[in-house]
């Protein structure tokens, strides 16, 4: 059973990572980020039921809250990019390099 949980977690995490690496739209990348965090939540929930550890469950809630905060910040940043009149894509964010 453990391996199944880790397989799911790993797969979702990899999907999320792939979305960040491969997608060009910033919103999609944000979704990938959220996916990664959620994937880890799955593993944590499984383990806290296995170890009967209520504290960890509370931690999962906190992590969800933090992920939400992160999403808020990310969206506000994407909004700022949009307001500046630029395309919400990674290609338009390539001025700083080297």
């Amino acid at each position: 059973m453990t391996w199944a949980v880790w397989a799911v977690t790993g797969f979702l995490f990899a999907c999320g990572a792939a979305m960040i690496v491969l997608r060009r739209q910033l919103l999609a990348m944000l979704m990938g980020l959220e996916l990664m965090i959620s994937a880890v939540n799955i593993a944590l929930v499984y383990y806290c039921s296995r170890y009967a550890d209520g504290e960890t469950l509370a931690s999962v809630l906190l992590i969800i809250a933090i992920a939400a905060a992160e999403a808020v910040v990310g969206l506000s940043l994407i909004l700022k990019v949009y307001e500046a009149g630029r395309e919400v894509e990674t290609e338009s964010l390539q001025e700083l390099k080297g």
């Binding site: 977690t9 995490f13 999320g16 990572a17 960040i20 980020l33 990664m36 965090i37 994937a39 880890v40 593993a43 944590l44 383990y47 992590i63 992160e70 990310g74």
Partner: peptide, 12 residues
């Protein structure tokens, strides 16, 4: 965000 997620995975 990616770094934090990796940290979280490691934590799990």
């Amino acid at each position: 965000g990616t770094g934090g997620s990796l940290f979280l995975f490691g934590l799990a």
